[in-house]
């Protein structure tokens, strides 16, 4: 059986990639994708922790329950987020973060 640490390693890598992408990339769509990746990383760890944190021989299903909620919420967030990005593109003809600078003091 694959040990827990392998799952955590992969999920940590995913999280770091997502976070790095959010910090480095300048395209809103890519940033949004990276954000979803961070959520997937959390999902992976949750499922792994739930599977390995046995209670009387059964997986701890609380973790998996949260995963379902995360998937649902992420879908709702994508629907709204893309709508906002489309509205922004219509108005400004851009999806780059450098162009979002109308408010500076």
């Amino acid at each position: 059986m694959i040990p827990l640490s392998h799952y955590l390693m992969v999920s940590g890598l995913l999280f770091a990639l997502g976070l790095g992408g959010v910090m480095v990339r300048r395209n809103l769509i890519i940033i949004f994708m990276c954000l979803e990746m961070m959520l997937s990383a959390a999902n992976l760890s949750l499922v792994a922790f739930a599977r390995y944190g046995l209670i009387e021989g059964h997986p701890n299903y609380e973790g998996q329950m949260l995963v379902f909620f995360i998937i649902t919420v992420a879908a709702a967030e994508v629907a709204l987020g893309l709508a906002i990005i489309v509205a922004l593109f219509r108005k400004e003809q851009t999806t780059h973060t450098e162009d979002l600078n109308s408010m500076k003091f």
Binding site: V22, L46, S102
Partner: peptide
């Protein structure tokens, strides 16, 4: 301005959510 504010809130709030969920995990 409203669009820009919404986009910033969307990205940063989703980032905070990412931290939250990973922390919960």
């Amino acid at each position: 301005k409203s669009l820009e504010a919404g986009t910033k809130y969307l990205i940063l709030s989703a980032l905070a959510t990412g931290f939250l969920v990973y922390g919960i995990a």
